[in-house]
């Protein structure tokens, strides 16, 4: 009986990570955060490179935390969580990318855009 109870209590943690896993995730995240921070305030790199680097660091940290903290890729099969996650990423990319594309295009093409920009800068209404 005791054995069964402990199996019940362990069940939720079966897919969770180990201490080493959490530690690795933590340290890697720390390194990425702090390097992104110092690269930004030091201004030693060109701006374009910095923009790319910050994005790369953020995305790597995103995946590191998904792996070590959320254990996303350790799902037991069938991997429905992963499937939902991938679908979500697709939707987010479509949504954010599409919105930015549409809105940039609007700003570029709307003949009023310069006036709107001007009035915005004046802080007044149309």
């Amino acid at each position: 009986m005791n054995k069964m109870i402990s199996r019940v209590y362990n069940a939720p943690t079966k897919a969770e990570g180990t201490f080493n896993g959490y530690l690795i995730g933590f340290i890697l995240s720390l390194i990425l955060t702090i390097s992104a921070y110092f690269l930004t305030i030091k201004h030693s790199l060109s701006r374009n490179l910095l923009v790319v680097l910050i994005a790369v660091f953020a995305i790597s940290q995103f995946f590191i935390q998904l792996i070590f903290f959320l254990h996303l890729f350790k799902d037991s099969k069938p991997r429905y969580r992963l499937l939902v996650f991938v679908f979500m990423i697709c939707i987010v990319l479509i949504l954010v990318g599409g919105s930015l594309w549409i809105m940039t295009n609007l700003n570029y093409d709307t003949s009023l855009s310069h006036e709107i920009q001007y009035m915005n800068n004046q802080g007044g209404g149309l």
Partner: peptide
């Protein structure tokens, strides 16, 4: 104030880590 923001970031990151440790302790009941 980027300095302030870095502190915030480190606080949250550490709390994420300790939250993980709390879950690990669950396993040992």
């Amino acid at each position: 104030n980027l300095h302030n923001v870095l502190t915030e970031t480190l606080l949250l990151l550490t709390s994420s880590f300790t939250c993980g440790l709390s879950i690990l302790s669950l396993r040992h009941r």
